[in-house]
Design a protein around this nucleic acid. Structure first.
Length: 356
DNA sequence: AAATCGGGGAC
DNA sequence: GTCCCAGATTT
């Protein structure tokens, strides 16, 4: 299998891109001022599969609470997760925390300056490592995030399906070739900015693009074909049941979810199997005597891969029979940990707000 | 190579 | 409603 890589005069591409970036690029993102390795790294992790506008507020709050890698490494896991609640992809937060502890423990709190070493940290792949190296240290390294992929694929006319080797391999090759040795920090920001603002997935603004003259997709009118659209897949429907239990002091029983799977590592309402004996579960799992109460209106939540119907069931707390060991705890209303968005909606819904 | 993991912005 | 985003990790 051979891939034809057109030579698009790399130096010219970088020059044109940088000239455009100086006028039209994004120069005041929070992680650019100050642009420390720690801030760049946290931003890069947050920006995985999450758009800039969503990340900004989370980033500011995260930096206020965890201003440096030592603070993050020493922080309780629940605190880190709470600051991630609502961002999604919670494995990112657990990896971030573990990586911080690794940087402090193994590298004395100083971030490695090379792609290879950075990639040994959990949650850092080739593109994120490249971004940290280029943006935080100004050292040459290619990046290949979603924006760069789209820009380069169109530029070179790569029509292979995203995810295939025929797509990924040439893109990395071209990413290396285009990345200049001068102004590598600005270049990596520039190619992402171009993808985010001009070379968008739908209706790219080719007339305003500094690379249009040598772009295969633009010249051949292939903008809608590159990148090739993904196959759509039917989203299965799933159901789950959760319990709303408050004790005599009005505190809410929450349970920490297992580290993998949906909402991994996040606190949530206790989940039970459909048809389970609620009183028995309460006794065995939580050591409380309780009776099933009314069912609340089901909550619908759409994930990328499936649709979830959440059946919440009120439970009447009587008394604590036995102190149990487990990943659950009673939380007051005003000290809630980070919770999944649909759970927050449920707890703040009018039907519960009255009594909770 | 394909599946998993999630929330929200944009349309 | 649909699509997809500054992807990494597991299978």
């Amino acid at each position: 299998m051979k891939h034809e890589i057109p030579d698009r005069a790399p130096a010219t591409i970088a020059d044109d891109l940088l000239t455009w970036f100086d006028r039209h690029g994004r120069h005041d993102l929070p992680w650019q001022h100050p642009r420390t390795p720690y801030r760049v790294w946290v931003a890069e992790i947050m920006l995985q599969q999450t758009q800039v506008t969503t990340v900004i507020d989370y980033f500011q709050a995260f930096m206020a609470r965890f201003p440096d890698v030592e603070t993050l490494a020493a922080a309780p896991s629940d605190d880190v997760m709470a600051h991630w609640a609502g961002l999604g992809y919670y494995a990112r937060a657990r990896n971030l925390h573990a990586a911080a502890q690794q940087v402090v423990g193994e590298y004395d709190g100083v971030f490695p300056r090379d792609v290879e070493t950075l990639m040994t940290l959990p949650g850092i792949g080739r593109s994120t490592a490249g971004a940290v190296v280029a943006q935080a240290f100004g050292i040459w390294a290619p990046i290949l995030d979603g924006n760069a992929k789209r820009v380069i694929a169109r530029l070179a006319g790569i029509t292979a399906a995203p995810g295939s080797a025929a797509y990924e391999k040439p893109l990395w090759q071209l990413a290396e070739r285009y990345t200049p040795h001068e102004r590598v920090t600005d270049y990596t920001q520039a190619i992402m900015d171009l993808g985010a603002t001009l070379c968008t997935r739908r209706r790219p603004n080719c007339p305003a693009c500094p690379l249009a003259a040598t772009c295969v997709a633009c010249i051949d009118g292939l903008q809608v074909d590159i990148p090739a659209p993904r196959k759509k897949r039917a989203r299965p429907q799933r159901e789950t049941t959760m319990l709303v239990i408050e004790d005599e002091a009005g505190r809410l029983l929450l349970e920490k979810r297992p580290p993998t799977g949906i909402w991994g590592g996040l606190w949530s309402l206790p989940e039970i199997e459909a048809g389970a004996d609620i009183a028995e579960v309460c006794r065995e799992r939580f050591g409380i005597e309780a009776a099933p109460g009314s069912a609340l209106a089901p909550i619908e939540h759409g994930f990328t891969h499936f649709l979830l119907t959440l059946h919440a069931r009120r439970v009447q707390y009587r008394r604590t029979v036995r102190i149990m060991d487990g990943d659950f705890a009673w939380y007051r209303r005003d000290e809630r940990p980070g919770l999944p968005a649909p759970i927050v909606r449920l707890l703040d819904s009018p039907q519960l707000k009255l009594n909770l």
